[in-house]
């Protein structure tokens, strides 16, 4: 099994994602350059956090048109597993691979702190190793992570079970105080209708060992490995 981590000009969590996969999860991983048009046979593509193309215009707006993204879109449309973390989530919404948009945090400040997430669905390839309702601790670090969608679209999103993670307090309660950025319905992460594309604002790759404050993020990487193994992909571990 091989992960690919895309490096855009301005990505700054690409090495974190790489290290999480290679050194902690123990699977093969390769960087994918934004100008490349080759996914190098990867089974999973990660769009990492950062400020791709300086986040000029809107976060993710320019990155979406890079050569590698044309391949990522093709890969996603054919059922390939794609994970967007933070800026990667913004890129995925701009590319139309995930519904909604991420706007400026309601309080206008960049927010960098630990949050708690509740796993809303453990049937997806990204949450297989979690249990439903489980509370995970991991950090956020963003200025534009305020998930927005119109009421009718939000209802459809909820009805289709596309919400994977919600901001909660440490006991798992969905409260306004636990919402770090004003996201509608405390939404922290969603999946695509087809289920193979996932985006989240919090950083699982920064929570893969206890020394980092939490190892909960590793569960998402383990989930993806489990999903790949179920699809017949050979894994290291």
């Amino acid at each position: 099994m091989k992960f690919g981590v895309v490096t855009f000009p301005g990505s700054n969590c690409d090495y974190d994602a790489y290290a999480a996969v290679r050194h902690v999860l123990g699977e093969e991983v390769e960087f994918l350059w934004h100008k490349s048009s080759d996914l190098a046979g990867c089974d999973v593509v990660i769009l990492p956090g950062g400020f791709a193309y300086g986040d000029y215009l809107r976060a993710g707006a320019i990155a979406r048109f890079s050569p590698i993204m044309q391949e990522v879109v093709r890969f996603a449309r054919s059922g390939g597993l794609v994970i967007g973390i933070c800026n990667g989530f913004q890129v995925l919404t701009e590319a139309g691979l995930l519904p909604g948009a991420l706007i400026r945090n309601a309080h206008l400040r960049f927010s960098c702190r630990q949050v708690y997430l509740r796993v809303e669905d453990n049937g997806s390839p990204f949450t297989l190793a979690c249990s439903r309702g489980e509370v995970l601790k991991m950090p956020i670090a963003h200025g534009e992570g305020n998930y927005y969608h119109f009421d009718a679209d939000l209802r459809a999103l909820e009805d289709d079970g596309l919400v994977l993670f919600r901001y909660v307090d440490r006991r798992g309660n969905e409260t306004p105080e636990a919402n770090p950025n004003g996201s509608r319905r405390n939404i922290a992460g969603i999946r695509s209708t087809e289920g193979n594309v996932m985006g989240m604002m919090p950083h699982p790759e920064r929570a893969v060992e206890p020394i980092l404050g939490s190892a909960d993020g590793l569960k998402l990487f383990e989930s993806v490995r489990l999903a790949c193994r179920k699809m017949g992909v050979v894994t290291v571990k």
Partner: peptide, 14 residues
């Protein structure tokens, strides 16, 4: 401009 109904934190702060 943001569509009607979309929160505009910048506008609110101004």
């Amino acid at each position: 401009r943001l569509k009607e109904g979309v929160l505009d934190p910048q506008g609110l702060t101004i």
